[in-house]
C-alpha cells in the first residue's frame, strides 16, 4: 500500500461523515428546490418576484453587513488594546470576550429580551432621561436584532483580529512614529493594513453567521421583522412548503457564497 492510499484510508472516516452529514442533506435540498409540484424553477420565481420576500432578503443582507461593520468597529480597537496591555489584563479581557460564548444563544437572547422590552431597563432609562418619546420601543425592531447579534458575534471578530495583531512587530509602529506618523496615522497606515487578514477572516465569520442566524433575530425581531432564516423556518413549519423553503435556502447559500468570492480573492492576492 503506498502513501496515497494510506492517506486516503486515514481520511476516509472524516470524508464519510462529511458526505453523510453535510453534502447529502445539502444535495437533497438542492434537488428538493427544483422538484416541486409547480415545476423546477417555480419556487425561485415566486421568491424573486414577490416584493415581500425580496424585502426579507435585502433586510438579511443589510443587517448582516451592519452587524459585521459594528463588530469590526468594536472588535478592532478591543483587539488592539488587548495586544498593548500586560499579559494578566489581556487574559482577563480574553475571558471577558469569550464568556458570552459559554452560555447558550437562547439564554443570552432572553437576557436581551428582558433588557430591551417595553418596561425593560434600557427603554425605561432612555425614557426617564427624556431622550425618547412615550411610545419608544426597542423589542421587535431591527435595532434589537443588531444589538443582540453584535454581542453574539463580537468574540469571533475580536479573536480573529487579535490573532493577527499579536504577530505584528511592535517596532513597526515605533518606526512609523519616528517617521512622522501620529498615533492614528500609525493605526491607519501600518496596523490596519497588516491586520487586514484578521479583519477579513473575522468579517467572513460575522457575515456568514449573522446571515444564517435564526434564533436571535427571531426572538428579538419577532414575527413582523423576518430574516431569511426565519422565513425558511416558517415555510417549513407553517405552510409546510418544502420546495419553497429549499429554494430560499439555496438563495441564502448563493448570496453568502457571492459575498465570499471577493473576500477570498482579496486575501488570496495578498498571500500569493
Amino acid at each position: 500500500m503506498n502513501d496515497r492510499m494510506e492517506n486516503l484510508l486515514l481520511a476516509l472516516p472524516g470524508l464519510l461523515l462529511l458526505v453523510l452529514a453535510f453534502f447529502l442533506p445539502i444535495g437533497q435540498m438542492l434537488v428538493l428546490s427544483v422538484t416541486g409540484p409547480e415545476g423546477p424553477l417555480a419556487p425561485f420565481v415566486r421568491f424573486l418576484s414577490d416584493p415581500y420576500y425580496l424585502g426579507i432578503l435585502w433586510r438579511t443582507v443589510r443587517l448582516s453587513l451592519l452587524i459585521t461593520l459594528i463588530c469590526g468597529a468594536i472588535g478592532f480597537p478591543l483587539a488592539y488594546i488587548m495586544t498593548k496591555v500586560g499579559p494578566r489584563l489581556r487574559l482577563w479581557l480574553v475571558v471577558m470576550v469569550i464568556l458570552p460564548l459559554m452560555t447558550s444563544v437562547v439564554v443570552r437572547t432572553f437576557g436581551w429580551m428582558v433588557l430591551l422590552s417595553r418596561s425593560g431597563l434600557i427603554p425605561e432609562m432612555l425614557r426617564d432621561m427624556g431622550l425618547v418619546g412615550r411610545n419608544f420601543a426597542l423589542m421587535q425592531t431591527e435595532t434589537a436584532i443588531v444589538i443582540g447579534m453584535v454581542q453574539v458575534l463580537l468574540p469571533f471578530m475580536a479573536l480573529s483580529i487579535l490573532g493577527v495583531l499579536t504577530r505584528i512587530d511592535g517596532r513597526l509602529e515605533e518606526a512609523a512614529r519616528t517617521m512622522g506618523c501620529s498615533f492614528l496615522q500609525t493605526i491607519r497606515t501600518v496596523v490596519l493594513p497588516l491586520a487586514l487578514p484578521g479583519i477579513v477572516a473575522g468579517s467572513l465569520l460575522c457575515f456568514t453567521l449573522s446571515a444564517s442566524a435564526f434564533i436571535t433575530p427571531n426572538l428579538l425581531g419577532g414575527t413582523r421583522i423576518q430574516v431569511l432564516a426565519a422565513s425558511i423556518y416558517k415555510s417549513v413549519t407553517a405552510t409546510p412548503d418544502w420546495p419553497f423553503a429549499a429554494a430560499q435556502a439555496v438563495i441564502l447559500f448563493a448570496g453568502i457564497a457571492l459575498v465570499l468570492v471577493p473576500y477570498i480573492k482579496m486575501t488570496g492576492a495578498r498571500n500569493g
Binding site: 512587530d169 518606526a175 519616528t178 517617521m179 501600518v190
Partner: peptide, 16 residues
C-alpha cells in the same frame, strides 16, 4: 516622536 524631526534605524530594520 513624530514632532521631533528625527529618523531612527532599528536593529530589526522595521521595514513595513
Amino acid at each position: 516622536p513624530e514632532k521631533r524631526d528625527i529618523a531612527m534605524m532599528f536593529q530589526s530594520y522595521a521595514l513595513l
